[in-house]
Design a protein around this nucleic acid. Structure first.
Length: 712
DNA sequence: GTCCGCGGGA
């Protein structure tokens, strides 16, 4: 900003000289001196005062006896036009200059750089005659190297590196920092580190740049190392340092370090800076501290769209989807308009809730406001539709997209996979390869799980051992878990077990549970027991394992086993979560707990259920009363089964939705075997598509079959 | 005398 001294000078010029200038330009005594015009032009440039600058320009043309302006005047004019984003006017002046000095070149190049035309900077640089008078200086290289950063032009950047090394320009801090930044943007952290270590004189910008580069490229321990060095050298931090270091804390999930930085921020009085504020919210959010994030948000008074989106993202990332969604109207009420990021966060919150109606509404909003064209919004829409059960709608969004990135393709592939539509998932994957989009780690999780659904064992191993290797993607525990699922589904349980024993992978609960599921489906009790023991060693409170184990015994009619598991659970004070299902009808979410008679339409729902269960009995449905372990009469056992929450929700859906509409139900636990059989038949009798999202996957029931192929 | 570098939300 300006100091008070030049301001008073300009005030003098503005009040005394400009009025007289505008009155008459024949009065020589009131004409501006050369120094004054240049100072005025700088003032116009700094304040982006286009009108004032234009006036000075006009004055220069009319008052000058010479038609040509001198180089310095023209340079000042170029700089002024550049600062007012009038790059073509600046270029016109530049082209008309009979002779140019190095400042003329650096001014026009900086102009192009700041207006986003980095390529034009490199073109100008190439046309600059090195051999002649003009010798590029530190200004030129700072701008050229920044343009290389924008373009990720590492080759040109390295050429500049050798030139500035030879000429000694590298020892200008501007050049050094621009070069270092170039390497970090081109993802060459070794190059950045070489510059950092070999060129003396690191300032706060150097530290900010290198730490930020390390964080963005995932080298967290290296970033921490530089941070420690910076602290030891007593470098004074600025706002950017706070933002950068908070980003590091967020990635490390290091709440202790983050709190210390927060303390420094408060001491420095920087807490009201919007960049610092959003970084604070993000840090607390990533560390799982939603309340601290909310406090930081509430402390701020000028809350822009970024801050609102940051706090919504915090809630969403921590599973508080409703809180995230509820902030939206609050934000709009405060006069802040959402942008593409806000829509993405909101849609992902809808995905978490399977709230398709809400998501539909946001889709409409995004369409009207033009944000649907943003890739992140479209990607979030695909995710929302497939996670709330309508993979067809997801595909519609996908098909209408003109540009797609890796996330787009991945979302569609894993969307189909979650729905058990392996063929469709693989077909999208092949189209991705044809479109020359490069698959990544996530892509193959979707592809391998599609193979698992289709039982394509050989193909699965081909993708894992061959294609991923060719594409230099290191397989992780998620991929290996898909392989376990693949072998398990094919009934090759001992191979799956051997696979787990032969790989030195840190197997997690998800992997073991996959094997346990396979044991459950294929009724391999001895292996299942062993696997369950492994899981309970990792997490003795894993309720899902107890339930799966007990279901496995039930399926095999081993009631002694069921009783022993129940006893074990009681002993360890582990409670089975009650089954809850919910369904959205006309923007209202109706929640059903098993044996629940609290709904206001309870009587009609039970009537409908009795009716439809009667119908499917004609088709051969026999309630699996043996699976009910309560010690009661058979008649009552049948009642227990018919009151399972998903059956209640489906009956409600049949009563309250149009006859063609698919019924979407979400359940907190896995579907039980009896419900699965019943719903298959209901889909036939009622001629409805019924989609159930359970704790594990999607089941899409239609005409008597389910997309899970009875394997879950 | 005139020109130059680092940062936030999915």
């Amino acid at each position: 900003m300006h100091t008070s001294k030049p301001l008073s000078l300009f005030q003098h010029v503005l009040t005394k000289k400009i009025p007289s200038l505008l009155k008459s330009n024949s009065d020589k005594s009131s004409a501006l001196s050369l120094e004054d015009t240049i100072k005025l032009l700088k003032f116009s440039a700094d304040t982006r005062d286009f009108k004032l600058g234009r006036t000075i320009h006009a004055h220069l043309i009319t008052s000058s006896s010479n038609v040509q302006l001198n180089v310095i005047q023209t340079n000042s004019l170029i700089h002024f036009y550049v600062k007012c984003d009038e790059i073509s006017l600046a270029r016109k002046l530049f082209d008309q200059m009979p002779e140019r000095n190095v400042v003329s070149w650096s001014s026009i190049m900086a102009g192009y750089f700041h207006n986003g035309f980095a390529l034009e900077v490199l073109n100008l640089f190439k046309s600059l005659n090195f051999g002649g008078f003009l010798c590029p200086n530190e200004y030129i290289f700072a701008t050229v190297l920044s343009s290389c950063s924008d373009l990720r032009a590492i080759k040109e950047g390295v050429q500049c590196h050798s030139y500035v090394l030879k000429t000694g320009l590298l020892f200008h801090s501007y050049v050094k920092n621009a070069l270092l930044h170039m390497y970090t943007r081109c993802l060459d952290m070794e190059g950045a580190l070489r510059v950092f270590k070999s060129v003396p004189g690191s300032d706060i910008l150097t530290y900010n740049s290198i730490i930020n580069g390390f964080v963005e490229n995932g080298y967290l321990s290296e970033a921490l190392e530089v941070l420690i060095q910076m602290v030891n050298e007593y470098v004074v931090w600025d706002h950017v340092t706070y933002v950068t270091v908070l980003g590091l804390c967020a990635h490390l999930k290091d709440i202790k370090l983050g709190s210390q930085v927060h303390g420094q921020i408060l001491k420095a009085g920087s807490e009201s800076d919007e960049f610092v504020g959003s970084a604070l919210i993000d840090m607390y959010g990533k560390c799982g501290k939603t309340i601290y994030a909310r406090n930081a948000f509430d402390e701020l008074h000028d809350r822009n769209v970024v801050l609102w989106t940051a706090i919504m993202a915090t809630y969403s990332q921590n599973g508080c989807f409703e809180e995230a969604l509820n902030l939206f109207p609050e934000m709009v009420l405060e006069g802040v308009q959402p942008n593409e990021y806000s829509y993405a966060v909101m849609l992902n919150s809808c995905a978490g809730l399977s709230a398709m109606r809400h998501g539909d509404m946001l889709n409409g909003h995004a369409l009207k406001s033009g944000f649907k064209n943003y890739m992140i919004v479209a990607n979030a829409l695909i995710n929302m539709y497939s996670k709330s059960g309508s993979v067809d709608h997801a595909n519609q969004v996908f098909s209408n997209m003109i540009y797609r990135d890796t996330v787009t393709w991945n979302s569609m592939i894993s969307g189909y996979s979650h729905h058990g539509l392996g063929r469709e998932a693989l077909s999208v994957f092949y189209r991705m390869l044809v479109a020359a989009e490069v698959p990544n780690y996530v892509t193959f999780v979707g592809v391998l799980s599609a193979c698992a659904h289709l039982g394509l064992v050989d193909e699965g191993f081909y993708y894992l051992n061959q294609l991923m290797k060719d594409m230099r993607i290191e397989p992780g525990v998620e991929h290996y878990t898909c392989i376990i699922g693949l072998l398990g589904r094919a009934g090759r349980l001992s191979e799956a077990e051997n696979f787990m024993n032969s790989r030195s992978v840190r197997w997690d609960v998800v992997a073991w549970r996959t094997l346990l599921s396979a044991c459950h489906v294929h009724r391999n009790i001895s292996l299942g027991k062993q696997v369950a023991e492994n899981i309970l060693k990792l997490d003795p409170n894993d309720v899902g394992t107890y339930i799966l184990l007990s279901n496995m015994y039930a399926k095999a009619r081993r009631w002694d086993g069921v009783v022993s598991i129940r006893k074990l659970m009681r002993g360890r004070e582990i409670k089975k979560e009650p089954g809850v299902s919910w369904i959205q009808v006309k923007n209202i979410t109706h929640v059903f707990v098993s044996e629940d008679k609290n709904h206001k339409d309870s009587i009609q729902i039970y009537d409908k259920l009795a009716d439809i269960l009667g119908q499917i009995k004609h088709l051969g449905y026999v309630p699996d009363i043996a699976s009910v372990v309560h010690d009661v009469e058979d008649e009552q056992k049948e009642e227990y089964l018919s009151f399972h929450s998903e059956k209640l929700a489906i009956a409600f859906g049949l009563l309250n939705t149009p006859s063609e509409a698919p019924i979407h139900v979400i359940k907190n636990l896995r579907m039980c075997h009896d419900c699965h059989t019943a719903v298959k038949l209901i889909s036939m009798v009622a001629q409805r598509k019924i989609i159930v999202r359970d704790a594990n996957r999607f089941h899409c029931f239609q005409s008597g079959t389910c997309t899970c192929g009875d394997y879950w």
